[in-house]
Design a protein around this nucleic acid. Sequence first.
DNA 1: GTTATTGCAAAATCTTTGCAGGGTG
DNA 2: CACCCTGCAAAGATTTTGCAATAAC
Lengths: 150, 150
Amino acid sequence: MKHSREKDSVMHIFTSYLERKGYRKTHERFDVLHEIYSIRGHFDVESLYGKMKTKKYAISIATVYNTIELLLECNLIKKHQFGENTSRYEKSFRGGNHDHLICTACGEVVEFWDPAVKEIQDAVTVSTGFEVNYHVLYFYGLCPKCKVKK
Amino acid sequence: MKHSREKDSVMHIFTSYLERKGYRKTHERFDVLHEIYSIRGHFDVESLYGKMKTKKYAISIATVYNTIELLLECNLIKKHQFGENTSRYEKSFRGGNHDHLICTACGEVVEFWDPAVKEIQDAVTVSTGFEVNYHVLYFYGLCPKCKVKK
DNA sequence: GTTATTGCAAAATCTTTGCAGGGTG
DNA sequence: CACCCTGCAAAGATTTTGCAATAAC
């Protein structure tokens, strides 16, 4: 089990969140968080659960769903639904604010970050009264290579 | 049955699409398109199907799903998955490029439009060389009511 | 007439729920 | 030692599929 500053940070954030809410700090919850922060890129519940079963964690799918709910609440993960019927998630600690450009021809994904997204969020927060926790922004189009081909 | 230029246009687009693909022009398919273009805002399959049953259209849920698939292919509707387990759709013919705020507690969806999204798109276009065709932007959080409850 | 499409119901998939037992605070 | 959380399995909800009957071309 590799230790990293990132993992220590998210464990701490999760601990604080659980304490603030009066929720219990069960080892299952930390197992899920640990496992998620070992995954690069996106994952779905099925693969996460399967991975944990393989690693001999004793955990049920119900608890995985339960924990994911908590991690969403404290913004340690992001939920995506790309049009399939299964939800996908990704960790969102530092780097959770990047957005994506997707090439509809070859599928290439490029990440970018623009501070103006935060400005839009602030404006929308004021005008609608929502409390925004996170966002998802995708630009779909053609990457340079596919643009040339066409 | 009200006639509108918009409906005539989308019927024509759909007809052309079906012909080009060699698909059959069944009355069920046009019934679904007609019904969808009578709906303001978002809808899900359940409500669309229920509405059509009430209006005494003879149609099955399987055919509704089938037709929605075709309408997605020819860009006459857009599919959204706001975090609930049911997909939602909306017509997309000259639908404007509005974006969405989604309440993660009660599922409420509010539309907004901010010109800065286009500015980000232009900036990203320049810096990455992508040719952007369309985008999706969701802000997730708590609506005013749920914010108070919490 | 051919054959894609429909309707029905059953199946498949993903997620939630109820409840008894176990672990946290 | 109270009661929140877990695991299990069953239930729910949405979407897909298989197949005979129907209708478009």
